[in-house]
Design a binder for these strands. Sequence first.
RNA 1: GCCCAGAUGGCGGAAUUGGUAGACGCAACAGACUCAAAAUCUGUCGUUCGCAAGGAUGUGCAGGUUCGAUUCCUGUUCUGGGCACCA
Length: 985
Amino acid sequence: MDYQFKDIEQKWQQFWADNQTFKAEDKSTKPKYYVLDMFPYPSGAGLHVGHPLGYIASDIFARYKRLKGFNVLHPMGFDSFGLPAEQYALETGQHPADTTEKNIATFKSQLNKIGFCYDWDREVRTSDPQYYKWTQWIFLQLFNSYFCNTEKKALPISRLINKYETKGAMPKTGDPIPGKHFTAEQWNAYSKNEQEDILMKRRLVFSAYGEVNWCEALGTVLANDEVVNGVSERGGHPVVKKKLRQWYLRITAYANRLLDGLNTVEFSESMKEMQSNWIGKSSGAEIEFEVGSQEPGAGSRLRVYTTRPDTIFGVDFMVIAPEHELVNKIKTPEQTKAIDDYVAYVKSRSERERMAEKKITGCFTGAYALNPFNGREIPIWTSEYVLAGYGTGAIMAVPCGDERDHKFAQHFNIPITNIIGSHYSGEEANATKDAILENSDFINGMVMKDAVDVVINKIETMGIGIRKVNYRMRDAAFSRQRYWGEPIPIVWKDEIAYPLDEKELPLVLPHVDTYKPGPDAQGPLANIPEWAKPTELPPALTGGRRETSTMPGYAGSSWYFLRYMDPHNDATFCDRKLSDYWNQVDLYIGGTEHAVGHLLYSRMWTKVLYDLNLIGFDEPYRKLVNQGMIQGSSRFVYRVTHHLENETQKTKAHLFISFNKLNETDFIKDWLAQKNIGTDQSSVQIISKNNPELKIEDSGKVTDELDIAVISKLHVDVNMVDGVELNIDEFKKWKNGEFADAEFILEDGKYICGVEVEKMSKSKYNTVNPDDLCNKYGADTFRMYEMFLGPVEASKPWDTKGIEGVHRFLKKLWRLFFDDIKGKVWNNDKANDVELKVLHRTIKKIEEDTERFSFNTAVSTFMICVNDLADLKCNKKEVLEKLLILLTPYAPHIAAELWDQLDNKISILDASFPVFDAKYLVETSKEYPVSINGKLRTNISLALDLDQKQVEEIVLQNDIVQKWLEGKASKKIIYVKNKMINVVV
RNA sequence: GCCCAGAUGGCGGAAUUGGUAGACGCAACAGACUCAAAAUCUGUCGUUCGCAAGGAUGUGCAGGUUCGAUUCCUGUUCUGGGCACCA
């Protein structure tokens, strides 16, 4: 009876499904544990071996926790809204709902083949109306909330309205600023539109005009990377910056809490750092400069943000962003033309150009600002290196301390003031904070970092500025001019956004026949008049138009972990009792690519829901583990084609040269002669790889030149290559026999392929399908091999070649129970001390390794254990059944089958994890390594209870130690109990 | 440019707290079983000198701390990832 993995795996997968073995109960006397994977986008390509890496890790942990006595929630679902489905629809006309449905079916069958313990009853799909009903509902909560700066949390907007109606919005100190402050009377007198505009500036999702890349010819907004040199990447149409109404998520309000929250979660240091860099907190001051006496700007106030107020006496010029409103206000008549030209020039440039070129540009406005401390006149420039969106959109430039300011000053010949003495070379800026200040009036002689607070305090008492914290993070764009996403539940009427009533949710995505963009920068939904301008609106909204943008991909994934807790609830997004019970995700596994997207949005939504008292915790993920990316390892063949007058000759003859023969071009000439191709083969040029004078063409490229033999590199399917050796028979059958008549130049009778590591993708023929591996070796082998590859967090190229080793291990395990000839060999004999020692050593190591997510070393521990038991000829149930429990999380099918064969009554999934007992590992003596001067010379076996003096005596008597002492006395003997001995001479 | 992580045999990797470097597996080589193959089993396997016993050397590179360093410190090179005019 040998190891029939196919039958076993099918049998148990069926059994688990039929018995709903993995159904999670919403209450239990056991402690709860929530294990979550980042749910996949169901792409048409299906799963490749890279996807399951994290899923296997989480599955092992979920099963392990169950054995450890936890009530485990381990769900799976699909992030099924998204751009690829829509692009596929544009190309093929197939409806995204249909392709998505099909893809999900494929994904599920692939996942089930690997034997994951998901509770499929709880599956969620973001594109399901029953799901996105609640995404839209949360949108309404965001819309109807504002961030209270006093309480530092979200509150219902009704409270703000109430405050405005009764108290207005007046400053605590100082005079009210028109446009910013108002009394209750003023508020009540405002028109509906004026009031809504003010409220919109506080809502957590809000609509505002933002600058986007607009391409008129394509009728759509383009992302920055879709614009090259000011024209669209596709078609080369002009692209302009355009202010368009867009929806935004006010994530900036949560910047500080998102930063602080990182201290309460277990994320990797690099993950925390990526997030805090993205949030980009900086502290400094806003300082107001008065614009000097020159007209027309005289008396205007220019506000700048700086992190270095200590350098205030080193300010040699000011720079304001070209979009800054003051530019037009302060430009002098002489500079007007230059400024207008410059602003127009900046406008014509795309983000990308600005970033790529990095050339120094700018223009003097003609105006001067006054240094508030010494009245010095400082020229005000405008330049594109100052961004309108950060700080106040204006800076004070200190060339001796800031590299960009320094380059700018040099470029425009602006004199540089040195306030840091010898720290400034005159050649380049020095951003030190440790210099002693010079030329700095009242802070002369101070160390720079001490002067920061002195200056801030002074500007605050003078009333010309304030201490200020700034964040680099921007509010996130929340609308997409796309079809395949959640419709935004808003109706526009008279320029006012009205949220739909909860009762009207879900606002279902209508069926469309075309996915082309709508008019005026609107999405495809605008092409359906009956939907965009519906007749059946509530009376108050009659004549209104629906918002035609849809939500971005991150909307649905920002809260899905909550829906798994209560997936079928039609009355609320997630019952409070259930979210209190399941609480935070205890273990979240996924890739680092979501570091600053999904994870930040999801953390923010959680905080909002917490603030609104809808859930009881404000961080979604207690611990995050990032699995590494599995790259593809591509294989190449090198094809010689010869170019003559017509295509036919080129494609008819294929000669493939083995990798290490690429620079031996004689083969090619011989072959050409033999084939009678080419006018005169001695004059044939050969373009080749490893030959330095010759170059190789990329796959499929054809040159126009004649009489050239080109060696081109072609991806071949990695599945027909064994290591680097091409399976020639399979290759000839590949692609419907395109290479059936291929000829080969071999080395040692083999065709050796080239190898490169690339992203895993279908087009590179380097994908490996987990289904194939499960069919060939079984899911248990596949699971353990993925783990055996290396640490889960590490990225590595996929290589199937070691999988045999893991498969052999499982077969060896099987033979501890059943022999091919003898049949059943396991027995009920009592285990001896040696066997128990092997077992308990294994229990200890597996528990430790699993707890620290070191699954690769756990697999090797299993191998060591099985090797030891085989050597000991131990077939005892007492030992083996414990080993099976340990193995269940890693190789659930074989463990379940063998457990069953051992006549056990309860399910192995509910067995309890073996308890490690240290008494089996107690030793009385140890083989100590003995070093002389740090170099290992011998081993001496010593009893463990010896003291230093006894050890020294024994060691010094040892022949080998004596030999190395060469008659000299030892200076010192270092004896570390249970570790080693070192004799110092 | 800035920040982070990493570099160990032919290959993937192990060494958890400064204490026997190379666990476990792959590949390779030799052998057993077999008519043969598959499967399985046994042995060798960093480099180098040596018949051997036994040496020397070895964790990217150069230093340092230590009785002892893959592990800690300084410098440096390379690779991967993130951010990129953020004042």
